[in-house]
Nucleic acid binder design. Structure first.
Length: 371
DNA sequence: AAATTGCACAACCGCCTGACT
DNA sequence: GAGTCAGGCGGTTGTGCAATT
């Protein structure tokens, strides 16, 4: 496996591609397209297997590739998407036009992972190490086997979906059901949440909505934001698809996104799931208390999400810039049921408001100090 | 100057899935 | 249904280069 049968039939070159090989492949595909990859090397006069040609084209020769280093905005977007999608590099790459899954994967493994660890954040779970340790301590004190870590500290459990557990894969298997969005939406600035803490809410039916925007989005399994998406369903697609369409296309029954006014979002609280007791969870309840305190105290803290999600460009603006296919080009009605798109838009609004609040709070702090 | 180390990137490997026979 | 092939994905390894010792 791995290497196709063609690779064994003849002596094929391996290793780095020479400029001559690149030129041959580029010329061939530019002129004829790739068609069947297995026939490309023969037609292009290359001693490579089709798989190798495909990879070289996708990762290096494709004309629409964006070369160069990743911008901070791109990094932030990758972190956010990784929190949602996990190691689904191809899906993450689909949201970053001009970037390949390989490129993103390399960036993650070589750079972003390290940055997150330096900031005390587990790159697998997107969760502060301190909290993970706390959970482990709880487990130890409860004399639980270490092999079965408590999936969540916060009272957010996936509502009953009727979908077998094994059909819904958490974005991060190691997260064991931890829902990373709270971290992702964690207020980036000192004190910015004061006065408008409830930026996002989560309720028992899996709805998330913002109280400063008129939208919400829903899913029926909080611990697994995405439904299990058969890889083939995605990977065999001829065209790279925006995440949003994948979400819609691959939603199992009962998995839905919807829009609506947050004022009536409580209608979604009709679930009888005893786990949730008909209540709405305040979004900040999902945020580690420690971080909240730090935030309120305005202390410098390496664990603050703001320092890696420094948000110089709000996410959805970025997304719109990066992927007009996702934002601008999307039909209104499609976007209307596209919860992620809405969430991204809300995220932008939220960041702007938080920035404003942060500025105001900073001024207040200064005034207090002076007083 | 030579050896070592660390990093970023490119490429390969192993596996999965769908299409086809 | 079983076998084969091709396309695709994620994990891992290899390579080249710069910085450091």
């Amino acid at each position: 496996m791995g290497r196709h049968s063609c690779c064994y039939k003849q002596k094929l070159r391996k290793g780095l591609w020479s400029p001559e090989e690149d030129e041959k492949l580029l010329k061939h595909i530019t002129k004829y397209g790739h068609g069947c990859w297995s026939s490309v090397p023969k037609l292009a006069g290359l001693q490579r297997c089709g798989k190798s040609c495909r990879l070289r084209w996708i990762n290096y020769l494709r004309p629409d590739l964006k070369r160069g280093t990743f911008s901070q905005q791109e990094e932030n977007l990758i972190i956010e998407l990784h929190g949602i999608l996990g190691n689904r590099w191809s899906q993450i790459a689909a949201q970053l036009p001009g970037r390949t899954d390989n490129e993103i994967k390399n960036l993650w493994n070589s750079c972003i992972k390290k940055k997150l660890r330096q900031r005390g954040i587990d790159p697998n779970t997107h969760k502060p190490f301190a909290e993970i340790e706390g959970q482990l301590a709880e487990i130890d004190s409860a004399d639980q086997p270490a092999a079965e870590p408590e999936p969540m500290k916060h009272p957010v459990q996936p509502p009953e979906t009727g979908i077998p557990n094994n059909s819904v894969r958490p974005a991060n298997s190691s997260a064991a059901g931890y829902f990373s969005l709270p971290n992702l939406t964690y207020s980036p600035d000192c004190g910015s949440n004061i006065g408008q803490i409830q930026q996002f809410w989560y309720n028992q039916s899996g709805k998330i909505f913002s109280n400063n925007s008129n939208s919400e989005f829903s899913f029926n399994s909080a611990s697994s934001l995405l439904p299990s998406v058969p890889r083939s369903t995605v990977s065999t697609s001829k065209e790279p698809k925006p995440l949003t369409s994948l979400l819609m296309e691959n939603s199992p029954s009962g998995f839905y996104w919807e829009t609506g006014n947050s004022s009536n979002s409580s209608a979604s609280s009709g679930s009888n799931d005893p786990l949730f007791d008909g209540s709405i969870f305040q979004w900040t309840q999902l945020i580690p208390e420690r971080d909240t305190n730090v935030q309120l105290q305005g202390e410098t803290d390496d664990l603050k999400w703001s320092e890696y999600l420094n948000g110089s460009v709000p996410l959805s603006t970025e997304l719109q810039n990066q992927n007009p296919e996702l934002c601008n080009g999307m039909k209104a009605e499609q976007f209307g049921i596209d919860g992620l798109g809405i969430w991204l838009q809300n995220h932008q609004q939220q960041q702007q408001q938080q920035q404003q609040a942060s500025d105001n709070y900073g001024k207040d702090c200064q005034r207090d100090i002076i007083c």
